[in-house]
Computed example of a mutant assay.
Amino acid sequence: MRLGLGCAQLGNLYRAMTDETAAAIVDAAWAAGIRYFDTAPHYGLGLSELRLGAALRDRPRDEYVLSTKVGRLLAENPAFVGQRDNSGFEVPATLVRRNDYSRDGVLRSLESSMARLGVDRIDIAFVHDAEDYVEETLAGAIPALIELRDQGVLRGVGLGMNFDRILAEFVRRSDVDTIMVAGRYTLLEQPALDELLPLCEERGVRVMAAGVFNSGILATPAPGTTYDYREAPAELVERARRIADVCARFGVELPAAAIALPATHPVVEAVVLGASSVRQVESNAARAAVEVPPQLWEALRAEGLLR
């Protein structure tokens, strides 16, 4: 299985970390064989990109794949008087995000990202959270990225979001190479099987599976209580508990099965996992190495717990 490191936590997602911890997380990922790193300007108002770039600076550029995102430009915050960011990142709000899915916005975003990362090229550029900007993205962002791909500046053009049906619309209407689908193809729920993944298979679009723990409920051997960043409904917690019980019969912990399931689909190229500590990186890598017997999936299907 190919693992990627999702770098939202490097932008102080929910809680602050030191620069040293951020560097150690990237070092641990590299030591575990991870060679795909995903970030975004949104993550910590550019802090994730700065930290990831610093941590990768001495690594051979041809030995890893780097993706970032476009759609949110960062601008100076003229009203800054000491307030903190209001989008879940523990950073000062010295910058503000401006949604911009135009051609000019995409080019400016990529230029700024490469400066923060300290690189001369990005491998994959994802249009980030464009669910409310479908037509603007189809008219501006995607054609601009495709032009850069055709010029050899990018290796891949993609989209990333939580909405499988809107991703399917983009795949159907544009020439993208890759998508990142978060939380919609997991051990708990698989709506991406309805349309998105078959369409990707038909059109040769590769998939990065993110959010495979559904933001926490599948992240521990005993199911958690957080689903899609909110308190999980009781029926989902019970469903996760039943899944965990079936996994236990096969000697597999719930998080290991959650990591393994997306990789069973032929279009999934990588499973992207975040980490807030070196220990989490090592734990994720160890769980990804667990061999899950096919009989586990069969048992889950037999009990109506898996598509």
Rank of each mutant, 00 (worst) to 15 (best):
G118F: 11
G211T: 10
G71Q: 06
L261Q: 07
D228K: 11
S112L: 11
A93T: 07
R165L: 10
S48P: 01
Q280I: 00
V268D: 03
A288P: 06
G53W: 13
R239V: 06
S113W: 00
G140V: 02
R184E: 09
V207C: 08
A55T: 03
D129L: 01
A302R: 12
Y227M: 03
I34Y: 01
R149W: 09
H265A: 13
D129A: 14
A28F: 07
V272Y: 10
E111C: 03
L196M: 08
V205K: 02
V290M: 01
R35G: 00
V119Q: 00
V290R: 09
I259Y: 14
T21V: 13
R172T: 14
Q151E: 14
R173P: 02
R51I: 12
D175L: 08
E131G: 04
R61P: 04
Y227G: 01
L52E: 09
R84N: 13
P198I: 05
A182G: 11
N99K: 14
L236N: 05
S112D: 15
V207D: 03
G204N: 08
V207R: 10
F250S: 06
L154H: 01
N284P: 02
A260S: 13
L197K: 04
I166E: 12
M208Y: 14
D100V: 07
G140C: 08
C247W: 11
R287M: 09
A141Q: 03
Y36I: 03
F37W: 06
R239P: 03
G33N: 02
Y185I: 01
R241S: 15
A263P: 05
D62W: 12
A192W: 08
H42Y: 15
L197N: 07
D245C: 05
L187C: 06
L188F: 04
V268E: 03
S112V: 02
L273V: 08
E131P: 00
P293G: 01
Q295T: 11
D85N: 15
L3H: 02
R307E: 05
A232G: 05
A139L: 13
E231F: 12
I142H: 05
A256M: 00
E253N: 11
G88R: 11
L138K: 01
E195S: 14
S109H: 03
T186G: 04
V134P: 07
E298W: 08
I217M: 07
A234F: 01
L52I: 08
W297K: 00
A115F: 04
I179Y: 04
S109A: 12
A263G: 13
A23V: 02
R241N: 02
E169L: 13
A141V: 05
V26F: 04
H42G: 04
V106H: 06
D19C: 09
V127K: 05
P233F: 10
V205E: 10
L5K: 13
V153S: 11
A32P: 00
T68F: 09
E282W: 06
F80L: 04
R57N: 13
L52W: 08
F213Y: 10
S102E: 02
W30D: 00
A288V: 10
Y185R: 06
L13H: 05
V181I: 15
D120W: 10
E63Y: 10
F126L: 06
D228F: 14
V271W: 13
V212T: 13
L305G: 12
G224E: 01
L188A: 07
I243Q: 12
A55N: 07
D100F: 14
S102K: 05
G251I: 08
G211E: 04
V181S: 15
A289H: 00
D245N: 14
V157M: 02
